[in-house]
């Protein structure tokens, strides 16, 4: 995506030597990378690789043990989540976190009330929510309770809630896990549309196939460290990635 001839600009997101320790366990260790504007970065890794921890550290839902997080060149390490949100960074949660007492429409409207480029009134925010529900494809559930939504629709709601804050950088934490084939296709299409609208996307995924088709670059985490970072093709052909994902027996069997 980024040609060498392009003028180097400040990356939307830069992570420097980020590390997080939970007791005696390093969930993340010396992770450094940057994401350019308009890029879609896929983050993959087996369970427990530190993917969600990485998102939490970036959005202020956890404090890094060491290292720095820079948004648009500004150090935001250790800032609270709402400060990060007001820096135009939005996220979804792997385990969806809808506001259960509110309707689907109201859930989305809250982001338009409290994020960036806030609407003038609650009514405007509700109108914004309707447009975003249409965008993610769950407009018909606007008046439903979020607990009535299917898994796929609940993920879409998470996405609409995040988009309502008008982010420049969107971190999505496993929106495709557990989705059916055609649902994944529409999710991939949606991510491309968001990028076309000028949003930089970091997509954490467990589903390898989906992430490969959507990402410009892919970062592979394993045991809290970066295993490799490169184009989807490079990453897919890396034997270390195959081993991390499928075990060394699979690699051995294939080479036999």
């Amino acid at each position: 995506m980024i040609a060498p001839s392009e003028v180097p600009s400040v990356p939307v997101l830069e992570v420097r030597h980020l590390a997080k320790r939970f007791g005696g366990l390093w969930a993340l260790r010396d992770v450094s990378f940057s994401v350019s504007e308009g890029e879609i970065l896929g983050v993959i890794g087996p369970n427990g690789a530190g993917k969600s921890t990485l998102v939490n550290l970036i959005t202020g839902h956890a404090r890094p043990t060491t290292g720095q997080v820079l948004i648009g060149g500004q150090d935001v390490t250790g800032q609270r989540p709402w400060v990060i949100a007001h820096d135009r960074v939005a996220r979804t949660f792997q385990i969806v976190k809808p506001f259960r007492g509110l309707t689907v429409r109201e859930n989305v409207a809250i982001g338009a009330m409290h994020g960036n480029e806030r609407d003038r009134s609650v009514r405007d925010s509700l109108a914004t929510a309707d447009e975003l529900l249409d965008l993610v494809g769950i407009a018909k559930h606007a008046n439903a309770a979020p607990m009535q939504l299917s898994v796929a629709d609940a993920r879409r709601l998470e996405l609409a809630k995040a988009l309502a804050t008008r982010p420049r950088l969107l971190l999505i934490d496993e929106v495709m896990a557990g989705l059916r084939h055609h649902e994944i296709e529409s999710a991939v299409e949606l991510i491309h549309r968001l990028r076309d609208a000028g949003i930089t996307v970091v997509a954490v995924e467990h589903v390898m196939k989906a992430i490969v088709s959507v990402s410009d670059r892919i970062l592979v985490l394993h045991h809290g460290s970066i295993l490799t970072l490169g184009s989807p093709r490079e990453v897919l052909s890396d034997p270390r990635v195959i081993e991390a994902y499928l075990g060394h027996r699979y690699v051995k069997r294939r080479s036999e």
Partner: peptide
């Protein structure tokens, strides 16, 4: 019925999610 009211409900439901959409909990 105000923005603040929605923020209170959001805090009630889930403070992490409330913070993520820009609410100073």
């Amino acid at each position: 019925r105000s923005r603040f009211g929605y923020a209170m409900v959001a805090v009630h439901e889930d403070e992490d999610a409330a913070g993520a959409v820009g609410i100073n909990t």
